[in-house]
């Protein structure tokens, strides 16, 4: 029934020991296909932990190359990776951690034109991006395609995340539309404590593993926010909004939109 080798059973033994995971749960993890959008601050811990956990297929989409200013928080990349494609660098590390994982890379950015075509091959999407246009694009594409996703945002000492499943609150239920261009700083303009990316990314990775194994309760209809200065964590109940422009009763958004906003790294250079 289960086709794990002796080596895999040893590798995943600490998962298998968990009553909520077991061999059955590990099998679900092995059959899972997860797309990580962005191999940066959030994507780094997400990819490292998902690869280690044995997610069967990990897609990584990032059209950017490693810059020295990334290394303070993008822990999947090393000094030797500067100027390499982030997707290639991340694939190499993921495969070194766990050769059982199939890593598919896209040296590109997620856009209105390619989003639905790329996410259709995956069971779950992780938002590891740094700008509102793509965060809204991931939301809209996943709502349209009926895919679950984990949203993540970090800024300075703060982080915020929620998990979407069809029928539960989406990003637009909470935030109707992207903020006016340049009004909200992205990480490159505002700064971010590197470890915050690890704190939030590991929460996102845990949500992925919970989703596939069915363990515990997901952050669906909940917005988790934390501040690392006070280490206050808050979980705010949110609900699907009937007037939501994409998942409400009368959706006004019927196709994907490329919002205009310079990407984090572009504004930085």
């Amino acid at each position: 029934m289960f086709d794990f080798t002796e080596e895999e059973l040893n590798r995943y033994s600490r998962h298998i020991l968990l009553k909520d995971v077991g061999v059955e749960g590990q099998e679900k993890i092995k059959n899972a296909k997860v797309l990580v959008v962005g191999a940066g601050g959030l994507g780094s811990p997400v990819i490292l932990y998902l690869a280690a956990a044995g997610i069967g297929t990990i897609g990584i989409i990032d059209g950017d190359v490693v810059d020295i200013s990334n290394l303070q928080r993008q822990v999947i990349h090393t000094t030797a990776d500067i100027n390499r494609y982030k997707a290639e660098s991340a694939k190499e590390k993921a495969e070194k951690i766990n050769p059982h994982v199939k890593v598919v890379i896209y040296k590109d950015f997620l856009r209105a034109e390619n989003a639905l075509d790329i996410i259709k091959d995956y069971d779950f999407v992780v938002d590891g991006t740094d700008n509102f246009p793509v965060k809204f694009l991931i939301n809209d594409a996943c709502v349209m395609a009926g895919k679950p996703f984990s949203h993540g945002g970090i800024l300075r000492f703060d982080g915020q995340t929620f998990t979407h499943k069809p029928g539960c609150a989406c990003y637009r239920c909470i935030f109707n539309a992207p903020p006016p261009k340049d009004l909200v700083p992205t990480c490159s303009q505002a700064g971010v404590l590197g470890a915050i990316a690890g704190m939030l990314g590991t929460i996102q990775a845990a949500e992925v593993l919970k989703y596939f194994t069915g363990a515990g309760e997901l952050l669906t209809d909940k917005l988790l926010t934390f501040n690392a200065k006070t280490m206050d964590f808050r979980k705010i109940n949110v609900h699907r909004r009937d007037t939501c422009p994409i998942c409400g009763s009368n959706p006004t958004i019927t196709e994907l939109i490329d919002y205009e906003q310079a990407a984090c790294d572009l504004t930085n250079r």
Binding site: L42, N131, K135, G153, S188
Partner: peptide, 11 residues
């Protein structure tokens, strides 16, 4: 009452 703020970073 909850005031919820955008958080756009991630990379």
């Amino acid at each position: 009452i909850d005031f919820l703020y955008f958080m756009g970073g991630g990379r």
